[in-house]
Amino acid sequence: MKILTKIKDNIFSKSLSENATTITVLEKTGNQIYTGPFAGLVIPDILKPSLKLAEALGLYEYALHRFFSDLINKDIKNIMVIGGHKGYYPAGLSNLLRPENMYVFEMDSNFQPLIDSWVEANNLKPYHTFGEASEEILLRWNNKIDFLLIDCEGAEDFLLQPQKFVWQKNTDILVEIHHFYDNKILGNLISRFKNTHDLSIIYDDISENKKIENVLEGLEIKGTFRGHPKHRWIFDKNRNKIITAGIFLYMSVKR
């Protein structure tokens, strides 16, 4: 029992250390995202206790940044995010691209206040918010979507079906691939979209850790963070915690 308690205490102290580092960063940067495509975005007070250090620094999922840069050269007026979570990507994309419509789906209603908090803190155009992205909603969807971002923990196979949800044939898509749930999912999606989209596979950038260390050094902050790949994990079918790797698929409509 004492050994177990000690392990829990160590885990808790590591979590506190990263959070303390994040709070120190925010104090130095004026409570704004420090760099990256979402730089300058004000971080709501409600999110400060749970914000990842990489998010506060603007280096979160650094490998995706060049694909967001690709979007600024396109006429992106309507964005859909399936898996809004705590609102980091809806807010960042809304602030960067200034779409006419931002549609956000999030099944967990507990996240809704967090998603909304970015809108108020940054004076963003209010989102259209939904719960689950059900088959009924996606089948009946009539509004044009220029860009779709999906992070839904293994639901990619259901959500991305261009033969069924035909509007997806004309939509640029960025999806996180949870191959530990389904090792055929990447190949399946490539087969479905290769005739209508130009495809790019994206892998986590391990150098993200070094970039974070360099920024902390520049800010004269001595802190700790979980880093890659410790922040990426899932429960397998036996409820064992396993470390995963980040893989994404970017699908740009053929012009």
Rank of each mutant, 00 (worst) to 15 (best):
L93I: 01
D172F: 03
L41Q: 01
E156A: 08
N183A: 04
E100Q: 13
I234K: 08
L59Y: 05
S17I: 06
I11M: 10
L148I: 03
N19V: 02
S13N: 13
E61W: 00
E208P: 01
I46N: 08
T22E: 08
N73R: 07
L189W: 05
L4A: 12
A56T: 03
I115N: 07
I11V: 12
N209D: 11
G40Y: 06
R66E: 15
I3E: 14
K8C: 06
Y60S: 11
P49Q: 08
L16C: 13
S17R: 11
I76P: 06
F67L: 06
L160W: 04
V253P: 01
K77Q: 14
A54F: 04
S191Q: 12
P49K: 08
R192V: 08
L148S: 00
N78Y: 09
H128D: 14
F248I: 01
G30S: 08
R140N: 15
K241F: 06
K144W: 02
I43T: 00
P229E: 07
I190L: 07
G223H: 04
I177R: 07
F180S: 13
I177E: 06
A133M: 00
L114E: 15
L124T: 11
A56N: 08
Q112V: 15
E55C: 08
N78K: 07
M80L: 12
P162F: 05
P126Y: 07
G58Y: 06
D204P: 06
K125R: 14
E27H: 08
K48D: 10
P113K: 09
R192D: 05
K222H: 12
E156F: 09
L26H: 02
A54T: 13
N238H: 09
Q32S: 00
S109F: 04
P113M: 04
D116Y: 11
E27W: 03
W141V: 02
K241W: 07
Y250R: 07
T5W: 06
D75C: 04
E100K: 11
S69E: 15
T35G: 09
G83C: 06
D157S: 14
I243K: 11
T24M: 03
K6C: 03
V25I: 07
M1P: 05
I137K: 10
S207Q: 14
P90C: 09
L16T: 10
V166W: 09
G223Q: 07
K77G: 12
R255M: 07
L53T: 00
I206D: 13
N183D: 15
L51W: 10
I150W: 01
G87K: 03
D45K: 13
N78P: 01
I150Y: 06
I212R: 01
S109G: 03
N31H: 13
R239S: 15
K237E: 15
Q112R: 15
K184C: 11
I137H: 08
I82T: 04
V215F: 02
N19Y: 00
F147P: 00
Q168C: 02
T244M: 00
F235D: 05
K28I: 04
L216C: 08
V104G: 02
F147E: 00
L71A: 03
F235A: 06
K184T: 15
S191M: 10
N122D: 10
G40T: 01
P49N: 11
T196K: 01
E18P: 03
E176F: 05
R239Q: 14
N73L: 10
K74C: 00
L149T: 03
G36D: 02
F111P: 03
I72A: 05
V42M: 02
